[in-house]
Computed example of a mutant assay.
Amino acid sequence: MSLTSLAHLGELSAGQWDALVPAGQPFLRHAFLSALEDSGTLGPHSGWQSEHLLWRDTQGTLLAAIPGYRKSHSYGEYVFDHAWADACYRAGIDYYPKWLGAAPFSPVGGRRLLGDPQAAGQLLQALPDYLEQHDLSGAHINFTDDRDNQLLAETSPWLHRLGCQYHWHNRGYRDFQDFLDTLTSRKRKQMRKEREQVAAQGFDFVWYHGGQISEAQWDFIYACYANTYQVRGRMPYLTRPFFSLLAERMPEDIRVVMALQQGQPVAMALSLVSGDTFYGRYWGCLAEFDRLHFETCFYQGMDYAIAHGLTRFDAGAQGEHKLIRGFEPVLTDSWHYLRHPGLRSAVANFLEQERAGVRAWASEARDALPYRQA
């Protein structure tokens, strides 16, 4: 058995990689990850250098893998360790470079330890030596699933961290009104009023699949996406070519809703659909309109999920405002291996307290949900 790294996913065939990826996880597919690399979104200039870890048998057969990246900062991860890096800086300890197992810029839960469980466990056991040989401060694996959690919990000394997101669940609703009927009177009126306010501004909404979108429309989609960063004085993570490559390589998973006013597009929300899940990803508009964000990003997605029998709507990280719109708190998991013993001890103490706080917050957050009590 051997642990090797891969600097470009294109060196491995899509068939080999995707054979390890469970169904319904589009952000781990060869098409998605290679589009990030081939579009120039990732690379040394971005602080995200691909370093996928592979575990092969003596015949060279690929048995397990982790999509991975050498990081020189902590942006775009959605599991925030800036305080750990700052503490290391003050103590004269190098925190970067570090290694991250993740789907870049995608805070979506799922499998990270790909392939055969036994082989994935062996890869984990070999990882500390790899970190030492390559002078990496540690390894971090974000947004893992239950199988990953079990493997990592059995491999000392990985540290467990909890987070909280908000997901909406389609409980067999016939239509949006059927969903509204499950809410308290006040919240039901609030959502109905929000939708009426958007309609009163003359908006229409048109849905597209990936294969239906022209390059001119992708230009508009990217302009909207980039504007969400530019208004905050930041550069967007994704490049324009990424969107064209994504449309070329996995059009069947892409859904875009465009908001039109007097026939002209002014906003959009791009999502991926896979299995039973609607993944809301990127939103943007060219001008500010009252309540348009909630309609385009949330209510349109709910409508789509209901109409197409999708049972879960994952709208991404953060956003307590989702609670009052029916998105329920969901705990997320990440795992951290830190080589420096002092740092590892301090972080372990912190995480023990943080886990209790996150669980308490998720429990309290349920009180803000708009659903009628039985």
Rank of each mutant, 00 (worst) to 15 (best):
Leu3Gln: 07
Leu3Ala: 11
Thr4His: 12
Ala7Glu: 12
His8Ile: 00
Leu9Pro: 05
Trp17Val: 06
Ala19Lys: 07
Leu33Thr: 09
Ser34Pro: 03
Gly40Gln: 09
Thr41Ile: 12
Thr41Phe: 10
Thr41Trp: 11
Leu42Phe: 12
Leu42Ser: 11
Ser46Asp: 09
Gln49Phe: 09
Ser50Gly: 13
Glu51Val: 06
Leu53Glu: 08
Gln59Glu: 15
Gln59Leu: 13
Gln59Asn: 13
Thr61Met: 13
Leu63Cys: 07
Leu63His: 05
Ala65Thr: 07
Lys71Trp: 07
His73Cys: 05
Tyr78Thr: 10
Val79Ala: 11
Val79Lys: 02
Trp84His: 09
Ala87Gly: 13
Cys88Glu: 13
Gly92Leu: 13
Ile93Ser: 07
Asp94Lys: 15
Ser106Val: 07
Pro107Met: 12
Gly109Lys: 11
Arg111Asn: 12
Arg111Lys: 14
Arg112Val: 14
Gly115Ala: 09
Gly115Glu: 03
Asp116Tyr: 01
Asp116Trp: 10
Asp116Lys: 07
Pro117Ser: 08
Pro117Gly: 01
Pro117Met: 02
Ala120Phe: 03
Gly121Trp: 00
Gln125Phe: 02
Glu132Gly: 00
Ser137His: 03
Gly138Ile: 08
Ile141Asn: 02
Phe143Val: 09
Thr144Ala: 00
Asp145Trp: 08
Asp148Ile: 06
Asp148Gln: 03
Gln150Trp: 10
Leu152Arg: 06
Ala153His: 06
Pro157Ile: 06
Trp158Tyr: 11
Trp158Gly: 06
Arg161Gln: 08
Leu162Asp: 05
Cys164Ala: 12
His167Tyr: 06
Trp168Ser: 10
Asn170Thr: 04
Gly172Pro: 11
Asp175Ile: 11
Phe176Ala: 05
Gln177Tyr: 10
Asp178His: 14
Phe179Gly: 01
Leu180Pro: 03
Ser185Cys: 01
Arg186Lys: 15
Gln197Cys: 00
Val198Pro: 07
Ala199Asn: 01
Ala200Phe: 00
His209Val: 01
Gly211His: 15
Gly211Pro: 10
Ile213His: 01
Trp218Tyr: 15
Thr228Asp: 10
Val231Ala: 12
Val231Asp: 09
Gly233Leu: 07
Gly233Lys: 12
Leu238Cys: 08
Thr239Ser: 14
Phe242Met: 02
Ala247Met: 01
Gly263Ile: 04
Ala269Ile: 00
Ala269Phe: 13
Asp276Asn: 14
Gly280Phe: 04
Tyr282Asp: 15
Glu288Ala: 15
Glu288Tyr: 15
Arg291Ser: 12
His293Val: 04
Glu295Cys: 05
Gln300Val: 08
Gln300Gly: 08
Met302Lys: 05
Ala305Asp: 11
Gly316Ser: 04
Glu320Phe: 01
His321Gln: 12
Leu323Phe: 10
Arg325Phe: 03
Pro329Gln: 06
Thr332Cys: 01
Asp333Ala: 07
Ser334Gln: 05
Ser334Asn: 04
Trp335Met: 02
His336Ser: 01
His336Lys: 09
Tyr337His: 12
Leu338Cys: 02
Leu338His: 10
His340Leu: 02
Gly342Asn: 02
Ser345Glu: 15
Glu352Asp: 14
Gly357Leu: 05
Val358Thr: 08
Arg359Glu: 15
Ser363Arg: 11
Ser363Gln: 14
Asp367Trp: 00
Ala374Ser: 05
